[in-house]
Nucleic acid binder design. Structure first.
Length: 478
DNA sequence: AAGTCACACAACCGCTGTTTT
DNA sequence: AAAAACAGCGGTTGTGTGACT
Protein backbone atom coordinates (compact mmCIF):
# COMPACT_ATOMS: atom_id res chain seq x y z
CA UNK A 1 0.00 0.00 0.00
CA UNK A 2 2.89 2.24 0.61
CA UNK A 3 3.52 4.77 -1.97
CA UNK A 4 7.09 5.48 -2.85
CA UNK A 5 8.36 7.01 0.28
CA UNK A 6 10.64 9.84 -0.20
CA UNK A 7 10.66 10.29 3.52
CA UNK A 8 13.28 12.80 4.28
CA UNK A 9 14.54 13.03 0.79
CA UNK A 10 11.88 15.24 -0.55
CA UNK A 11 11.83 18.80 0.42
CA UNK A 12 9.36 21.54 0.07
CA UNK A 13 9.57 24.87 1.64
CA UNK A 14 7.97 25.44 4.94
CA UNK A 15 5.05 27.29 3.59
CA UNK A 16 3.46 24.01 2.91
CA UNK A 17 2.53 25.24 -0.47
CA UNK A 18 3.67 22.34 -2.52
CA UNK A 19 3.01 24.23 -5.68
CA UNK A 20 6.52 25.38 -5.15
CA UNK A 21 8.38 22.53 -6.68
CA UNK A 22 11.58 24.39 -7.19
CA UNK A 23 12.93 23.21 -3.91
CA UNK A 24 12.95 19.67 -5.13
CA UNK A 25 15.54 20.47 -7.68
CA UNK A 26 17.38 22.94 -5.60
CA UNK A 27 17.81 20.57 -2.76
CA UNK A 28 17.09 21.33 0.81
CA UNK A 29 15.99 24.84 1.43
CA UNK A 30 14.42 25.43 4.78
CA UNK A 31 13.12 22.34 6.26
CA UNK A 32 12.36 18.81 5.44
CA UNK A 33 8.94 17.72 4.44
CA UNK A 34 8.15 14.11 4.58
CA UNK A 35 6.07 12.41 1.97
CA UNK A 36 4.54 9.03 1.58
CA UNK A 37 2.46 7.00 3.96
CA UNK A 38 1.75 8.32 7.36
CA UNK A 39 3.05 6.51 10.37
CA UNK A 40 0.98 5.99 13.50
CA UNK A 41 3.30 8.33 15.30
CA UNK A 42 2.66 11.05 12.81
CA UNK A 43 -1.04 10.43 13.04
CA UNK A 44 -0.85 10.78 16.77
CA UNK A 45 0.96 14.06 16.51
CA UNK A 46 -1.56 15.39 14.07
CA UNK A 47 -4.52 14.26 16.10
CA UNK A 48 -3.04 15.81 19.15
CA UNK A 49 -2.41 19.03 17.37
CA UNK A 50 -5.90 19.26 16.00
CA UNK A 51 -7.34 18.50 19.40
CA UNK A 52 -5.43 21.42 20.77
CA UNK A 53 -5.76 23.91 18.01
CA UNK A 54 -8.67 22.74 15.98
CA UNK A 55 -8.87 22.29 12.29
CA UNK A 56 -7.42 24.79 9.93
CA UNK A 57 -4.09 26.52 9.93
CA UNK A 58 -2.66 23.42 8.47
CA UNK A 59 0.60 25.00 7.63
CA UNK A 60 1.12 25.83 11.23
CA UNK A 61 1.00 22.16 12.03
CA UNK A 62 4.26 21.73 10.30
CA UNK A 63 5.69 24.73 11.99
CA UNK A 64 4.48 24.09 15.49
CA UNK A 65 4.05 20.41 15.94
CA UNK A 66 7.30 19.07 14.75
CA UNK A 67 5.53 17.08 12.15
CA UNK A 68 7.49 16.98 8.95
CA UNK A 69 4.51 17.20 6.73
CA UNK A 70 3.27 20.02 4.63
CA UNK A 71 0.00 21.60 5.57
CA UNK A 72 -1.71 20.17 2.62
CA UNK A 73 -0.72 16.69 3.52
CA UNK A 74 -1.90 17.24 7.07
CA UNK A 75 -5.25 18.49 5.95
CA UNK A 76 -5.67 15.53 3.68
CA UNK A 77 -4.65 13.07 6.29
CA UNK A 78 -7.00 14.57 8.79
CA UNK A 79 -9.88 14.83 6.42
CA UNK A 80 -9.54 11.40 4.97
CA UNK A 81 -8.36 9.31 7.86
CA UNK A 82 -8.15 10.93 11.22
CA UNK A 83 -11.14 13.10 11.73
CA UNK A 84 -13.84 11.68 13.92
CA UNK A 85 -17.02 10.14 12.61
CA UNK A 86 -15.35 8.79 9.56
CA UNK A 87 -16.94 5.68 8.23
CA UNK A 88 -14.56 2.99 7.32
CA UNK A 89 -15.11 0.03 5.17
CA UNK A 90 -16.95 -0.66 2.02
CA UNK A 91 -19.85 1.40 0.89
CA UNK A 92 -23.20 0.02 1.77
CA UNK A 93 -25.64 -0.64 -1.06
CA UNK A 94 -27.58 2.39 0.10
CA UNK A 95 -24.53 4.54 -0.07
CA UNK A 96 -23.68 3.19 -3.47
CA UNK A 97 -27.10 4.07 -4.65
CA UNK A 98 -26.75 7.55 -3.32
CA UNK A 99 -23.42 7.97 -5.02
CA UNK A 100 -24.77 6.81 -8.31
CA UNK A 101 -27.70 9.09 -7.98
CA UNK A 102 -25.61 12.05 -6.96
CA UNK A 103 -23.11 11.47 -9.69
CA UNK A 104 -25.81 11.41 -12.25
CA UNK A 105 -26.81 14.84 -11.07
CA UNK A 106 -23.59 16.43 -9.99
CA UNK A 107 -20.96 14.77 -12.09
CA UNK A 108 -17.48 14.52 -10.65
CA UNK A 109 -18.16 16.84 -7.78
CA UNK A 110 -16.72 14.56 -5.20
CA UNK A 111 -16.67 17.02 -2.39
CA UNK A 112 -20.27 17.86 -2.89
CA UNK A 113 -21.14 14.24 -3.05
CA UNK A 114 -19.21 13.62 0.13
CA UNK A 115 -21.23 16.33 1.79
CA UNK A 116 -24.26 14.19 1.19
CA UNK A 117 -22.66 11.11 2.66
CA UNK A 118 -21.75 11.68 6.27
CA UNK A 119 -18.57 9.99 7.26
CA UNK A 120 -17.40 9.51 3.73
CA UNK A 121 -14.69 11.44 2.04
CA UNK A 122 -14.46 12.79 -1.42
CA UNK A 123 -11.43 10.64 -2.00
CA UNK A 124 -13.28 7.52 -1.07
CA UNK A 125 -16.14 8.37 -3.32
CA UNK A 126 -13.85 9.25 -6.13
CA UNK A 127 -11.98 6.03 -5.84
CA UNK A 128 -15.14 4.08 -5.61
CA UNK A 129 -16.57 5.73 -8.63
CA UNK A 130 -13.52 5.37 -10.77
CA UNK A 131 -13.18 1.75 -9.92
CA UNK A 132 -16.79 1.12 -10.49
CA UNK A 133 -16.73 2.87 -13.77
CA UNK A 134 -13.80 0.88 -15.02
CA UNK A 135 -15.47 -2.29 -13.99
CA UNK A 136 -18.71 -1.51 -15.63
CA UNK A 137 -16.97 -0.24 -18.65
CA UNK A 138 -15.15 -3.48 -19.05
CA UNK A 139 -18.33 -5.38 -18.56
CA UNK A 140 -20.05 -3.29 -21.18
CA UNK A 141 -22.62 -2.14 -18.72
CA UNK A 142 -24.15 1.26 -18.48
CA UNK A 143 -22.69 3.43 -15.80
CA UNK A 144 -26.05 4.44 -14.54
CA UNK A 145 -28.93 2.10 -14.07
CA UNK A 146 -31.72 3.02 -16.43
CA UNK A 147 -33.92 4.44 -13.73
CA UNK A 148 -31.16 6.66 -12.43
CA UNK A 149 -30.33 7.70 -15.92
CA UNK A 150 -33.88 8.63 -16.65
CA UNK A 151 -34.18 10.47 -13.42
CA UNK A 152 -30.99 12.37 -14.00
CA UNK A 153 -32.03 13.29 -17.47
CA UNK A 154 -35.27 14.58 -16.16
CA UNK A 155 -33.45 16.41 -13.45
CA UNK A 156 -31.25 18.22 -15.89
CA UNK A 157 -33.99 18.87 -18.28
CA UNK A 158 -36.06 20.33 -15.55
CA UNK A 159 -33.34 22.44 -14.09
CA UNK A 160 -31.82 23.56 -17.29
CA UNK A 161 -34.41 23.64 -19.92
CA UNK A 162 -37.65 24.31 -18.24
CA UNK A 163 -36.57 26.60 -15.49
CA UNK A 164 -34.03 28.54 -17.47
CA UNK A 165 -35.69 28.71 -20.77
CA UNK A 166 -35.35 30.61 -22.83
CA UNK A 167 -32.49 32.36 -21.17
CA UNK A 168 -30.38 29.47 -20.19
CA UNK A 169 -26.69 29.78 -19.84
CA UNK A 170 -26.43 26.10 -20.06
CA UNK A 171 -28.45 26.16 -23.19
CA UNK A 172 -26.07 28.68 -24.44
CA UNK A 173 -23.25 26.35 -23.66
CA UNK A 174 -24.74 23.64 -25.73
CA UNK A 175 -25.72 25.88 -28.52
CA UNK A 176 -22.46 27.65 -28.70
CA UNK A 177 -20.52 24.47 -28.61
CA UNK A 178 -22.48 23.25 -31.51
CA UNK A 179 -21.45 26.17 -33.61
CA UNK A 180 -18.40 24.32 -34.63
CA UNK A 181 -18.49 22.00 -37.52
CA UNK A 182 -18.24 18.31 -37.42
CA UNK A 183 -18.32 16.51 -40.64
CA UNK A 184 -21.28 14.30 -40.50
CA UNK A 185 -20.44 11.56 -42.89
CA UNK A 186 -17.17 10.47 -41.61
CA UNK A 187 -15.88 7.58 -43.63
CA UNK A 188 -13.55 6.75 -40.82
CA UNK A 189 -16.47 5.95 -38.62
CA UNK A 190 -18.18 3.15 -40.44
CA UNK A 191 -20.14 2.01 -37.45
CA UNK A 192 -22.04 5.19 -37.23
CA UNK A 193 -25.29 5.42 -38.92
CA UNK A 194 -26.48 8.30 -40.96
CA UNK A 195 -29.67 8.71 -39.15
CA UNK A 196 -29.08 12.30 -38.35
CA UNK A 197 -31.94 14.26 -39.82
CA UNK A 198 -29.71 17.21 -40.31
CA UNK A 199 -27.86 15.36 -42.92
CA UNK A 200 -30.74 15.89 -45.20
CA UNK A 201 -30.28 19.53 -45.04
CA UNK A 202 -28.65 21.06 -48.03
CA UNK A 203 -24.94 20.82 -47.85
CA UNK A 204 -25.17 20.28 -44.18
CA UNK A 205 -21.71 18.89 -43.97
CA UNK A 206 -20.28 22.11 -45.19
CA UNK A 207 -22.32 24.60 -43.33
CA UNK A 208 -22.58 25.87 -39.90
CA UNK A 209 -26.04 26.28 -38.75
CA UNK A 210 -26.92 28.80 -36.19
CA UNK A 211 -27.66 26.64 -33.25
CA UNK A 212 -30.08 29.12 -31.90
CA UNK A 213 -32.15 28.34 -34.93
CA UNK A 214 -31.62 24.69 -34.64
CA UNK A 215 -34.21 22.57 -32.98
CA UNK A 216 -32.29 20.04 -31.05
CA UNK A 217 -33.68 16.64 -30.96
CA UNK A 218 -32.66 13.91 -28.70
CA UNK A 219 -31.57 10.70 -30.09
CA UNK A 220 -33.56 7.74 -29.08
CA UNK A 221 -32.33 4.29 -28.61
CA UNK A 222 -32.33 3.54 -32.24
CA UNK A 223 -31.25 6.89 -33.41
CA UNK A 224 -27.71 5.85 -33.88
CA UNK A 225 -26.48 9.34 -34.31
CA UNK A 226 -23.24 8.39 -32.90
CA UNK A 227 -21.03 10.71 -34.78
CA UNK A 228 -22.76 13.62 -33.28
CA UNK A 229 -21.14 15.21 -30.37
CA UNK A 230 -21.71 17.93 -27.91
CA UNK A 231 -19.81 18.69 -24.82
CA UNK A 232 -20.36 15.98 -22.38
CA UNK A 233 -21.57 17.20 -19.16
CA UNK A 234 -20.53 15.64 -15.93
CA UNK A 235 -23.74 13.85 -16.18
CA UNK A 236 -21.75 11.66 -18.39
CA UNK A 237 -19.06 9.71 -16.73
CA UNK A 238 -17.04 10.50 -19.77
CA UNK A 239 -17.06 14.05 -18.90
CA UNK A 240 -14.20 13.01 -16.78
CA UNK A 241 -10.90 14.14 -17.97
CA UNK A 242 -9.43 10.79 -17.34
CA UNK A 243 -7.70 10.03 -20.54
CA UNK A 244 -7.73 6.37 -19.81
CA UNK A 245 -11.44 6.47 -19.73
CA UNK A 246 -11.79 8.62 -22.72
CA UNK A 247 -9.68 6.30 -24.70
CA UNK A 248 -11.96 3.44 -24.07
CA UNK A 249 -15.29 2.67 -25.46
CA UNK A 250 -18.05 5.06 -24.81
CA UNK A 251 -20.52 2.56 -25.89
CA UNK A 252 -21.97 1.79 -22.58
CA UNK A 253 -23.25 5.13 -21.61
CA UNK A 254 -22.26 8.09 -23.61
CA UNK A 255 -24.73 10.86 -23.20
CA UNK A 256 -25.01 12.60 -26.42
CA UNK A 257 -27.37 15.20 -27.61
CA UNK A 258 -28.08 15.27 -31.20
CA UNK A 259 -26.05 17.89 -32.87
CA UNK A 260 -24.00 17.49 -35.99
CA UNK A 261 -21.22 19.59 -34.72
CA UNK A 262 -18.21 19.11 -32.69
CA UNK A 263 -16.47 21.77 -30.71
CA UNK A 264 -13.21 21.05 -32.38
CA UNK A 265 -11.81 24.51 -32.57
CA UNK A 266 -12.32 24.99 -28.92
CA UNK A 267 -10.36 21.92 -28.22
CA UNK A 268 -7.59 22.43 -30.63
CA UNK A 269 -4.46 23.52 -28.93
CA UNK A 270 -6.32 24.99 -26.09
CA UNK A 271 -4.29 23.38 -23.40
CA UNK A 272 -1.07 24.75 -24.71
CA UNK A 273 -2.01 28.33 -25.06
CA UNK A 274 -2.98 29.03 -21.59
CA UNK A 275 -1.20 29.79 -18.47
CA UNK A 276 -1.02 26.26 -17.31
CA UNK A 277 2.42 24.86 -17.20
CA UNK A 278 1.15 21.37 -17.03
CA UNK A 279 1.68 18.83 -19.68
CA UNK A 280 -0.82 19.62 -22.35
CA UNK A 281 -2.68 16.40 -22.40
CA UNK A 282 -6.37 15.91 -22.42
CA UNK A 283 -6.04 14.83 -18.87
CA UNK A 284 -4.41 17.97 -17.72
CA UNK A 285 -5.96 20.14 -15.19
CA UNK A 286 -7.90 22.27 -17.55
CA UNK A 287 -9.92 19.28 -18.34
CA UNK A 288 -11.96 20.06 -15.32
CA UNK A 289 -13.19 23.02 -17.18
CA UNK A 290 -13.43 21.57 -20.59
CA UNK A 291 -14.17 18.05 -19.67
CA UNK A 292 -17.04 17.93 -21.96
CA UNK A 293 -15.21 19.27 -24.90
CA UNK A 294 -12.32 17.00 -24.44
CA UNK A 295 -14.58 14.12 -23.86
CA UNK A 296 -16.58 14.80 -26.91
CA UNK A 297 -13.56 15.13 -29.06
CA UNK A 298 -11.88 12.05 -27.81
CA UNK A 299 -15.05 10.18 -28.02
CA UNK A 300 -15.66 11.01 -31.59
CA UNK A 301 -12.25 10.06 -32.62
CA UNK A 302 -11.36 7.16 -30.52
CA UNK A 303 -14.39 5.11 -30.25
CA UNK A 304 -16.00 3.15 -32.90
CA UNK A 305 -17.57 0.85 -30.46
CA UNK A 306 -20.77 2.67 -30.03
CA UNK A 307 -23.72 1.18 -28.43
CA UNK A 308 -26.74 3.07 -29.45
CA UNK A 309 -28.72 1.67 -26.62
CA UNK A 310 -27.32 4.31 -24.42
CA UNK A 311 -27.28 7.32 -26.54
CA UNK A 312 -29.31 9.68 -24.63
CA UNK A 313 -29.30 13.22 -23.72
CA UNK A 314 -27.19 15.17 -21.41
CA UNK A 315 -27.99 18.33 -23.16
CA UNK A 316 -26.59 20.71 -20.71
CA UNK A 317 -24.04 21.12 -18.10
CA UNK A 318 -25.38 20.13 -14.77
CA UNK A 319 -24.96 22.23 -11.71
CA UNK A 320 -21.43 22.97 -10.84
CA UNK A 321 -20.03 22.62 -14.26
CA UNK A 322 -18.95 25.70 -15.99
CA UNK A 323 -17.02 23.82 -18.55
CA UNK A 324 -18.17 25.71 -21.53
CA UNK A 325 -17.34 29.02 -20.08
CA UNK A 326 -13.99 27.71 -19.14
CA UNK A 327 -13.56 26.76 -22.69
CA UNK A 328 -14.56 30.20 -23.75
CA UNK A 329 -12.01 31.70 -21.48
CA UNK A 330 -9.45 29.35 -22.82
CA UNK A 331 -10.35 30.23 -26.34
CA UNK A 332 -10.16 33.88 -25.57
CA UNK A 333 -6.79 33.39 -24.02
CA UNK A 334 -5.66 31.36 -26.94
CA UNK A 335 -6.74 34.03 -29.33
CA UNK A 336 -5.03 36.68 -27.38
CA UNK A 337 -1.90 34.62 -27.13
CA UNK A 338 -0.59 35.92 -30.40
CA UNK A 339 -0.93 39.41 -29.26
CA UNK A 340 -0.05 39.42 -25.67
CA UNK A 341 0.38 43.09 -25.30
CA UNK A 342 -3.01 43.62 -26.75
CA UNK A 343 -4.61 41.34 -24.29
CA UNK A 344 -2.76 42.86 -21.44
CA UNK A 345 -3.87 46.34 -22.12
CA UNK A 346 -7.30 45.27 -23.10
CA UNK A 347 -8.38 42.56 -20.74
CA UNK A 348 -11.86 42.72 -22.03
CA UNK A 349 -12.88 39.42 -23.36
CA UNK A 350 -10.95 37.02 -21.24
CA UNK A 351 -11.48 39.09 -18.18
CA UNK A 352 -15.11 39.45 -18.81
CA UNK A 353 -15.53 35.85 -19.55
CA UNK A 354 -13.59 34.96 -16.49
CA UNK A 355 -15.75 37.26 -14.50
CA UNK A 356 -18.77 35.75 -16.09
CA UNK A 357 -17.54 32.34 -15.25
CA UNK A 358 -17.02 33.24 -11.66
CA UNK A 359 -20.49 34.56 -11.41
CA UNK A 360 -21.81 31.54 -13.15
CA UNK A 361 -20.01 29.23 -10.82
CA UNK A 362 -21.15 31.17 -7.91
CA UNK A 363 -24.64 30.76 -9.09
CA UNK A 364 -24.25 27.11 -9.75
CA UNK A 365 -22.32 26.31 -6.67
CA UNK A 366 -25.52 26.54 -4.78
CA UNK A 367 -26.35 23.04 -5.92
CA UNK A 368 -28.85 24.67 -8.10
CA UNK A 369 -28.33 28.13 -9.28
CA UNK A 370 -29.77 30.69 -6.97
CA UNK A 371 -32.05 31.62 -9.75
CA UNK A 372 -33.38 28.17 -9.81
CA UNK A 373 -33.59 27.91 -6.10
CA UNK A 374 -35.43 31.14 -5.90
CA UNK A 375 -37.77 30.09 -8.61
CA UNK A 376 -38.30 26.78 -7.02
CA UNK A 377 -39.05 28.21 -3.67
CA UNK A 378 -41.30 30.87 -4.92
CA UNK A 379 -43.17 28.55 -7.15
CA UNK A 380 -43.30 25.81 -4.60
CA UNK A 381 -42.41 23.27 -7.19
CA UNK A 382 -39.30 21.97 -5.69
CA UNK A 383 -39.20 18.81 -3.79
CA UNK A 384 -38.06 18.68 -0.26
CA UNK A 385 -34.98 16.77 -1.13
CA UNK A 386 -33.99 19.19 -3.77
CA UNK A 387 -34.29 22.12 -1.49
CA UNK A 388 -32.59 20.29 1.22
CA UNK A 389 -29.68 19.46 -0.98
CA UNK A 390 -29.41 22.97 -2.20
CA UNK A 391 -29.41 24.27 1.28
CA UNK A 392 -27.04 21.71 2.60
CA UNK A 393 -24.51 22.07 -0.06
CA UNK A 394 -24.51 25.68 -0.64
CA UNK A 395 -25.02 27.52 2.54
CA UNK A 396 -21.40 28.23 3.23
CA UNK A 397 -20.46 28.61 -0.35
CA UNK A 398 -23.34 30.84 -0.99
CA UNK A 399 -22.50 33.10 1.84
CA UNK A 400 -18.99 33.36 0.56
CA UNK A 401 -20.21 34.05 -2.89
CA UNK A 402 -22.47 36.80 -1.76
CA UNK A 403 -19.56 38.61 -0.31
CA UNK A 404 -17.91 38.58 -3.64
CA UNK A 405 -20.86 39.32 -5.76
CA UNK A 406 -22.59 41.93 -3.78
CA UNK A 407 -25.36 41.79 -6.27
CA UNK A 408 -28.64 40.13 -6.69
CA UNK A 409 -27.77 36.74 -8.08
CA UNK A 410 -31.06 36.48 -9.82
CA UNK A 411 -30.50 39.64 -11.67
CA UNK A 412 -26.95 38.68 -12.31
CA UNK A 413 -27.88 35.44 -13.90
CA UNK A 414 -30.61 36.86 -16.01
CA UNK A 415 -28.54 39.67 -17.36
CA UNK A 416 -25.76 37.27 -18.00
CA UNK A 417 -27.93 35.03 -20.06
CA UNK A 418 -29.20 37.96 -21.98
CA UNK A 419 -25.69 38.76 -22.91
CA UNK A 420 -24.92 35.28 -23.90
CA UNK A 421 -27.95 35.02 -26.06
CA UNK A 422 -27.31 38.29 -27.69
CA UNK A 423 -23.96 36.89 -28.64
CA UNK A 424 -25.54 33.75 -29.87
CA UNK A 425 -27.91 35.63 -32.03
CA UNK A 426 -25.04 37.07 -33.91
CA UNK A 427 -24.31 33.73 -35.41
CA UNK A 428 -25.81 33.50 -38.84
CA UNK A 429 -28.25 30.83 -39.70
CA UNK A 430 -25.80 29.23 -42.02
CA UNK A 431 -22.29 29.94 -42.88
CA UNK A 432 -19.81 28.33 -45.18
CA UNK A 433 -17.37 25.85 -43.88
CA UNK A 434 -14.04 27.55 -43.51
CA UNK A 435 -11.39 26.54 -45.92
CA UNK A 436 -9.05 25.39 -43.22
CA UNK A 437 -11.66 23.02 -42.03
CA UNK A 438 -12.34 21.59 -45.43
CA UNK A 439 -8.66 21.07 -45.94
CA UNK A 440 -8.43 19.10 -42.81
CA UNK A 441 -11.67 17.26 -43.01
CA UNK A 442 -10.05 14.02 -43.92
CA UNK A 443 -8.21 14.16 -40.70
CA UNK A 444 -9.62 13.09 -37.51
CA UNK A 445 -10.37 15.88 -35.17
CA UNK A 446 -9.05 14.37 -32.04
CA UNK A 447 -6.40 15.77 -29.85
CA UNK A 448 -4.19 12.88 -30.62
CA UNK A 449 -4.09 14.03 -34.17
CA UNK A 450 -3.36 17.58 -33.53
CA UNK A 451 0.25 17.36 -34.45
CA UNK A 452 -0.81 16.27 -37.90
CA UNK A 453 -3.55 18.74 -38.28
CA UNK A 454 -2.08 21.95 -39.44
CA UNK A 455 -3.50 24.61 -37.27
CA UNK A 456 -5.28 27.32 -39.08
CA UNK A 457 -3.40 30.42 -39.69
CA UNK A 458 -4.71 33.10 -37.45
CA UNK A 459 -4.27 35.44 -40.36
CA UNK A 460 -6.59 33.32 -42.39
CA UNK A 461 -9.67 35.35 -43.04
CA UNK A 462 -12.10 32.58 -42.46
CA UNK A 463 -10.41 31.38 -39.39
CA UNK A 464 -10.34 34.87 -38.14
CA UNK A 465 -13.98 35.07 -38.84
CA UNK A 466 -14.89 31.92 -37.10
CA UNK A 467 -12.94 32.63 -34.02
CA UNK A 468 -11.53 36.06 -33.97
CA UNK A 469 -14.12 38.23 -35.52
CA UNK A 470 -17.01 36.61 -33.87
CA UNK A 471 -15.36 36.66 -30.52
CA UNK A 472 -14.66 40.29 -30.99
CA UNK A 473 -18.34 40.75 -31.25
CA UNK A 474 -18.72 39.37 -27.83
CA UNK A 475 -20.87 41.80 -25.95
CA UNK A 476 -19.65 43.27 -22.79
CA UNK A 477 -20.79 40.90 -20.17
CA UNK A 478 -19.19 41.96 -17.01
C1' DA B 1 5.21 -21.41 -7.64
C1' DA B 2 5.42 -17.59 -10.55
C1' DG B 3 3.38 -14.20 -13.31
C1' DT B 4 -0.47 -11.23 -14.50
C1' DC B 5 -4.31 -8.60 -13.75
C1' DA B 6 -7.86 -5.90 -11.52
C1' DC B 7 -8.99 -3.67 -7.62
C1' DA B 8 -8.81 -0.71 -3.54
C1' DC B 9 -6.63 2.64 -1.40
C1' DA B 10 -3.56 6.42 -0.02
C1' DA B 11 -1.27 10.17 -1.25
C1' DC B 12 0.57 13.55 -4.31
C1' DC B 13 0.04 17.13 -7.83
C1' DG B 14 -1.54 21.23 -10.08
C1' DC B 15 -4.77 24.46 -10.06
C1' DT B 16 -8.22 27.73 -8.39
C1' DG B 17 -10.68 30.59 -5.24
C1' DT B 18 -10.61 32.98 -0.88
C1' DT B 19 -8.58 35.34 2.83
C1' DT B 20 -5.01 37.85 4.92
C1' DT B 21 -1.20 40.95 4.93
C1' DA C 1 -4.68 47.09 -5.05
C1' DA C 2 -1.38 43.60 -5.14
C1' DA C 3 0.96 39.83 -3.34
C1' DA C 4 1.27 36.06 -0.34
C1' DA C 5 -0.71 32.57 2.21
C1' DC C 6 -4.13 29.42 2.85
C1' DA C 7 -7.73 26.04 1.89
C1' DG C 8 -9.92 23.07 -0.96
C1' DC C 9 -10.98 20.44 -5.19
C1' DG C 10 -10.45 17.14 -8.76
C1' DG C 11 -7.21 14.31 -11.41
C1' DT C 12 -3.65 11.15 -11.36
C1' DT C 13 -0.36 7.86 -9.82
C1' DG C 14 1.92 4.29 -7.15
C1' DT C 15 1.60 0.35 -4.21
C1' DG C 16 -0.30 -3.67 -1.75
C1' DT C 17 -3.37 -7.42 -2.16
C1' DG C 18 -5.97 -11.15 -3.76
C1' DA C 19 -7.82 -13.81 -7.56
C1' DC C 20 -6.78 -16.07 -11.49
C1' DT C 21 -4.00 -18.45 -15.04
Amino acid sequence: MARTVSNNDSTNDETGDDSNTATKDEGEVKGRVRKGPWTPAEDAILVEYVKKHGEGNWNSVHKNSGLFRCGKSCRLRWANHLRPNLKKGAFSPEEEQIIIDLHSKLGNKWARMAAQLPGRTDNEIKNFWNTRMKRRQRAGLPIYPPEVHAEATAYHLQNRYLEHQPHSSASFALLLSSCYPKKINDPDQPNRSNANPLQNQPDSANCYINPSQQQFKFSNENGGNSNLAVPLSPLSPYGSSSSSLLNHSFGDHGYIAESPYEPFPLVRGSTTDISSNQTPTPASSYASGVDGLMGASSMVNNNNNYNNDYYEVAPLSPPGNSGLLDALVMEAQGLSHNDKSKSEEDPTLAGKLSCKRKNMEYAEEGGTAPVVSAMKKSSGNSTTTENQRDDDISSSQLSKGKKVMGEDPLEEMNSMDDDLFSLLNQFPLEMPMPEWYRRGESQSLGLENQPNASPPDPADQEYAWTLGTRWNNMPSIC
